[in-house]
């Protein structure tokens, strides 16, 4: 994997993993993002294009739902974003 370097003034993709399977009903809440339900009972939220301010706003929304946050990882730009919100990419 190449080394993604998020920058303060730039945008970058992020993968945010939370505990629990989030219903697709919340997709408007996570507009423009892809929800991937993993087999281990977590949800991977793929955000293709966030700047730092949007990332913090997004984390506040995760907080406001009481979703336990597991990880926030910058995505490598070469990694494809799956079009479907169902199923595991693996």
């Amino acid at each position: 994997m190449n080394d993604p370097k998020p920058r303060l003034g730039g945008t970058s993709g992020y993968e945010i993993r939370t505990q629990g399977r989030i219903s697709d009903r919340w997709s408007h809440w996570f507009e423009g993002m892809t929800l991937v339900h993993e087999d281990d009972g977590t949800t991977l939220i793929r955000c293709p294009d966030l700047d730092q301010a949007a990332l913090h706003g997004f984390l506040a929304r995760v907080r406001d739902l009481g979703l336990p946050l597991i990880s926030v990882t910058p995505m490598s730009s070469s990694e494809p974003t799956p079009g479907s919100s169902q199923g595991s990419p693996r």
Partner: peptide, 11 residues
């Protein structure tokens, strides 16, 4: 059920 508890319970 492994759903987000609020989803499951609110439903």
């Amino acid at each position: 059920d492994d759903r987000y508890v609020v989803d499951y319970l609110a439903d």
